[in-house]
Nucleic acid binder design. Structure first.
Lengths: 174, 174
DNA sequence: CTTAAACTATGAAGCTGTAGTCAGGTCAAA
DNA sequence: TTTGACCTGACTACAGCTTCATAGTTTAAG
């Protein structure tokens, strides 16, 4: 049996958090002491570590509760959905990066920032021995093996949708 | 003079949002009609589009208000700070992706997901004509030109910090 | 001219996932 | 016995809105 303070230390979260989980029914201690203290069993700990895991994956408490309580629903679908959501979130953040770089007036900052440019990427590939032909081939292979990731990668270089469309177009054809 | 509804259409946001902006003082209409309707001037529109821009960059309303109202503070520093924040946010989301892929049992999903694997990346480079030597050179160039981006990219392939450390280590030396 | 739809107003409460504060009850050790 | 560490429930605050309730105004149709 563990008190609330012990869980707080184990999982490095605040007491308020556990109180809240109790209140919303996500993690309710299996017992109470004579003095009405919350007492968590090993099963509760087990449940808590599941919650922790899913939280790290970015799931909402509501969704976590669904997974844990309605056993019928296997988590696979939910996790896949979250994976998709993550893709859109990341791409939104990348758009924010590109916008800020524009606002800052490009040149000065591109060098210091960790955001890559199309030109910089091409320069690196050239410097490591790739020629035009090899790069074309690289796009083709990328598109064949991981079309979605190809799209994401080009976006991350700040290339516009129109140009991306063209590149992927001819990469698919060959 | 524009009513609140006209702004709603122009900027594609909800009326409640504008009411809220009014309340917190971020965007207060310059005038009111006889019936006490909010009336926005062209200057207000101008201000709104600035707000919109900074919002797209992911700045908080509080920070936006600072930039717009305290003209002394040039936005550069704030934007650079946001750029840094974006890097950590993106890398957190990538960690969530990797975790979910683990939870899903890897193999089945890696093929359909848009997340790249080290193996997949290497396969693409090989298929487009790179050999071991060229890849080594590629790391060296990447590290020399954009060390931070190199780190980010390796992280995005799900490579552990220890291995990343090794790769960047020898890439720096040569 | 009337009436209904479509607009506008104010104010309050709700949402998520915590963090923190309060006044007090409990418990083990010195 | 008294300290001090722990615990209790209940409350407030945060961002950036949304929703709700209630009501006044404008505009177009009939």
């Amino acid at each position: 049996m563990y008190t609330i303070g012990q869980l707080v230390k184990q999982f490095e979260l605040s007491r308020s958090t556990l109180l809240y989980y109790d209140k919303i029914g996500l993690l309710q201690p299996s017992a109470r002491s004579a003095a009405n203290y919350r007492l968590y069993t090993k099963d509760d700990l087990q449940r808590m570590s599941q919650i922790f895991l899913y939280k790290e994956a970015g799931l909402s408490l509501e969704v976590i509760a669904q997974i844990l309580d309605e056993q019928s629903n296997q988590p696979t679908a939910i996790l896949e959905q979250r994976l998709n959501q993550l893709n859109t979130e990341i791409s939104q953040l990348r758009q924010q990066q590109q916008l800020i770089i524009e606002l800052l007036g490009k040149e000065s900052l591109l060098r210091t920032s960790r955001v890559m440019d199309k030109a910089q990427w091409v320069a690196i590939l050239k410097a490591s021995g790739m020629d035009e032909q090899a790069m074309k081939q690289w796009h083709i292979e990328f598109e064949r093996g991981l079309p979605e990731a190809h799209q994401d990668f080009l976006e991350s270089l700040g290339i516009g949708q129109d140009e991306i469309g063209k590149i992927r177009g001819w990469a698919r054809l060959e």
